[in-house]
C-alpha cells in the first residue's frame, strides 16, 4: 500500500473561465477529494496560479499532475509535499463582542495565537489568523468555548523553495524558440493565447 499524504499541486495556466472545471474533472474522475483550492494571478503576466491540496498517494498524484498538464491551457503543473514549499492559509473567526468584553482570557488567547482583530461592532468581533492548517484549527478549538458563530478558512497558497523558477524559464524558452522560428528575431513576441477582448467575451 502506498503512503497517503497531503499533496499540494500548483498549476500555472492561462487565465480562462473554464480552467477550474477542467482541473476538478481530473480529481473527481479518480475519486480524489480536493481539500482546498485557491486561484489567483501570479507574478507572470497573463498567467494564473491554482493551488490544490488533496490526500492521496504519490503514484496517483503523479498521474493527476500528468493529466492536468494535458489541459490545453495549462503551462505546467507541479507536485509537492509540505517540506518542499512555504505555505500559508488565512482563517476568519466571528465571536460575540460581549464575550470579549466579559472574559479577559479571550484577549490572551488572541495574543497567544498572534491573531488580529479586523472589525469590532456592538454585536460581534471578527478575528483573523494566518498560519498552517493546524494553527488556524487550534485557535478555532479554543474559541469554541466563547460561542464562536462563524469560522472560515481559505485554500492554501504556497511558494516553492526550489531556487529555479521553472515556469518563467519554460515560457521564456517557448516564446524565444517561437520568435526565432517566426522571424529569426528573438525580440519578436508572439501573441498571447487570447486577446483581452476575446477573453472577456468568451466563456472558456
Amino acid at each position: 500500500m502506498q503512503e497517503r499524504k497531503l499533496f499540494t499541486v500548483t498549476i500555472f495556466s492561462e487565465n480562462t473561465v473554464g480552467i477550474l472545471n477542467l482541473i476538478a474533472i481530473v480529481y473527481t474522475r479518480r475519486c480524489i477529494n480536493i481539500e482546498s483550492i485557491s486561484a489567483s494571478a501570479c507574478s507572470i503576466p497573463g498567467v494564473h496560479k491554482v493551488t490544490v491540496t488533496s490526500w492521496s498517494d504519490r503514484p496517483s498524484m503523479i498521474k493527476v499532475v500528468n493529466a492536468i498538464e494535458k489541459i490545453i491551457y495549462v503551462v505546467k503543473a507541479f507536485l509537492y509535499t509540505d517540506d518542499e514549499i512555504v505555505y500559508q492559509e488565512i482563517a476568519l473567526y466571528k465571536v460575540p463582542t460581549v464575550r470579549l468584553v466579559d472574559e479577559p482570557e479571550l484577549e490572551k488567547i488572541i495574543r497567544r495565537h498572534n491573531a488580529r482583530i479586523l472589525e469590532i461592532t456592538h454585536d460581534y468581533t471578527v478575528l483573523e489568523k494566518t498560519g498552517h492548517n493546524d494553527e488556524t484549527e487550534a485557535l478555532f478549538e479554543e474559541l469554541k468555548a466563547y460561542d464562536i458563530t462563524q469560522f472560515v478558512r481559505s485554500g492554501r497558497v504556497c511558494i516553492t523553495k526550489d531556487p529555479v523558477e521553472h515556469v518563467t524559464n519554460y515560457l521564456a524558452e517557448r516564446d524565444r524558440l517561437r520568435s526565432i522560428q517566426l522571424s529569426g528575431d528573438p525580440s519578436h513576441s508572439p501573441h498571447p493565447f487570447f486577446s483581452e477582448e476575446t477573453k472577456e467575451n468568451t466563456n472558456l
Binding site: G18, N21, I25, T198, T202, N203, L204
Partner: peptide
C-alpha cells in the same frame, strides 16, 4: 455542451462572437 464535452475532448470552446470564429 461545453461542460458535457470537457472530459471527453482535447479542447472545447464556446464561441459567442462572430469575430472569434476564424481564430
Amino acid at each position: 455542451m461545453v461542460d458535457i464535452a470537457n472530459p471527453i475532448t482535447k479542447w472545447a470552446l464556446q464561441v459567442r462572437r462572430a469575430a472569434d470564429i476564424p481564430s
